[in-house]
Design a binder for these strands. Structure first.
Lengths: 365, 365
DNA sequence: TATTGCTATGCAATCGATTGCAATCGCAGT
DNA sequence: ACTGCGATTGCAATCGATTGCATAGCAATA
């Protein structure tokens, strides 16, 4: 109790200080130097805690600097020191609820490591991504975290160039050629496999896939899913594979799918956000999930457990991913840049069975 | 068709250029100057498109700079120019799905205005907020966007100091003393009033409130709601007012609320995210929404329409808010800082009736 | 031819820090 | 008294741009 009171008190004092300090805004080293009757070099050293300056002098300088609210000018400091203590983050967007979760985690990790975050939203646009990269480079960030969207292919060439020229970069998500760089990705392949087995165990033989073409190579959810299900003896008819690019497409796909004869008993959706639209449409069409038809998503968004029925899905510990992501980068920044081989970190995924998946209906239709 | 092909082509060339340029990394003005046989001043002027340099010379320099992929060092430029083309954004978090929407909009606007975004997540912690503010100041951002969380009180003092010392700041959300600054807020008061009237029209007389204490003064949702409902002759019993701080609290509140005699026929929840938990718990307790009990949220999150039943709520056009938010700031940055009076911009809210609210059940219980 | 004027360019200061090197001081040892 | 050394401190260069001012070159004019 008492300690809390003291802490609060200390905090308030600090605030007071800060408010006060602002009255005289934006002083520089030399101002403090003049006040203390020393040279600005001495002030610089004193404030950096150098042993090269006399203890008494240092304390006097510290007091003065404090009183007048001196705060170092980072941009000058950055210029001299040739680093910025800033990390650039490029993410596709924040609308898809998967990304905020990720960015939040990343921001926390970055902050904990003592860096600032420069955020760019590429909005799925490759030219934007390129511009962000250039901008980040011009601002001399110490390293770049690049979350490849569902494209991420083209601009990665420039990123590769940057990387080669010494700029530490870590990618999130797989893309062709990723092996030459540091990257982190969820084990979507294994996730897809788990879903496949889950559906097989529930007895489904007629399954539809609503996916996107994203060329994630060995980690491509759709491809792996289709293969694994085939492994279990279930081949997914080409007519039951829907490639979609917008919410509108999903709605269309569901409509079409419901005309198919015999009607699929389960739907594998590329993402939770797609699965949710699917459920909504199914419901609108008078079908029950999972009694008439099972639906499975991917990502384990927070909302997945809120919709009704709660969504069966696959997810991975996003904090772990974020952690690996920024740790790899900060290691690169501090350690020798070309020291270690590029590494791909694959973080495991796990199936989360909820209510949207169930046994095959006994007599379809 | 053809134009697309050309565009793609141009883009690819540009990419090629960029990749190439990187081979010789991080040249400076003087390198280009040497290459062109002129002084670095001339190069600087040429690249800035100054009329002071001979057209032929300029073009030659541009070509060389381009060939060698020269890109200006922003941090040096910033130091000289005394501005950074960067805007700082402090937001509480990204977990609550309201903020990503907002941040996304803000990031777009900021980008469109030609600024970079420095993002800080204060995580509801006032000391964090203070640190972010200091950090942003030390990095000499050109202006600060501060999204006050549900506290936002303390650090605003330092912000006020910063503001007074000439740093452009715009706040989002109301707090005591906000009138002295530029701020933008949704018209939560009116939103609350609309909900009150909606519930009254549906015949509800026994209403529970699950809210937070956030001291939003004239814009406080809970207070305004309670008053407006009282205006209509319905007083909300003190025992039917729940103050919560965590998801756990919400669950407890619902449990307790269901014991109350007579049981409320409607619940006003402070936020959609709370309302969703409420619905979930109600459902778990075997009650039907809205047949047995109506639930209304606030914010109009994207998910609000996905949950079942779809949530009746209040929202405002978030793009408009973001737009007002960053425009106000960029105006301050470019225009005279102390020129105009501080302005509060209040953007209207609108009731979105969906399925979670309905008529009072005829015989309660 | 000398003067004027204009265009194009270079020199050097500046932004605000950091840091290697030189200089100063006091004091002890011989 | 002189030398040497350790402890402090200041000088000045540096990071990579921008820009006011001086200047060189050249044509036009008197």
């Amino acid at each position: 109790m008492q300690s809390i009171a003291i802490a609060v008190d200390t905090y308030c004092n600090r605030l007071q200080d800060c408010v006060y300090r602002l009255q005289s805004h934006m002083l520089k080293l030399e101002d403090i130097a003049k006040l203390a009757g020393v040279s600005h070099s001495t002030v610089s050293r004193a404030l950096a805690g150098s042993t090269l300056v006399n203890r008494a002098t240092r304390e006097r300088i510290e007091a003065i600097a404090n009183d007048h609210g001196y705060q170092v000018n980072q941009v000058a400091r950055n210029l001299k020191l040739q680093h910025t203590n800033t990390i650039g983050l490029i993410a596709p967007e924040l609308s898809n609820p998967y990304y905020p979760k990720l960015v939040q985690s990343i921001a926390n990790c970055v902050g904990d490591s003592g860096y600032s975050l420069q955020l760019h939203l590429s909005g799925k646009d490759q030219e934007n991504e390129l511009n962000s990269l250039i901008n980040l480079r011009n601002n001399r960030v110490d390293g770049i975290l690049l979350v490849t969207g569902e494209h991420g292919l083209v601009a990665s060439e420039y990123a590769a160039g940057l990387h080669k020229s010494g700029m530490p970069i870590v990618f999130m998500g797989w893309f062709p050629g990723a092996e030459d760089f540091d990257f982190v990705t969820g084990d979507d392949a294994d996730g897809a496999r788990q879903i496949a087995r889950h559906l097989l165990e529930l007895g489904h033989k007629n399954i539809a896939v609503i996916g996107k073409t994203v060329h994630r190579g060995p980690f491509d959810r759709t491809t792996v899913f289709i293969n694994e299900v085939a492994q279990g003896g279930v081949v997914i008819d080409i007519g039951n594979r829907y490639e979609i690019t917008s919410e509108q497409d999903v709605i269309l796909a569901v409509k079409q799918l419901l005309q198919t004869e015999p009607r699929p008993t389960a739907i594998f959706a590329y993402q939770d956000s797609i699965a949710m639209v699917v459920c909504k449409e199914l419901h609108a069409a008078g079908l029950r999930v999972p009694d008439d038809i099972s639906v499975i998503g991917f990502d384990d968004l927070d909302i997945a457990s809120f919709v009704s029925p709660a969504l069966t899905t696959v997810g991975c510990h996003i904090d772990a991913m974020a952690h690996a992501f920024v740790n790899r980068l900060t290691d690169r920044i501090s350690g020798g840049s070309a020291a270690a081989q590029p590494t791909g970190i694959v973080v495991p995924t796990v199936l989360i069975p909820r209510q949207s998946s169930g046994n095959t209906p006994l007599k379809p239709r």
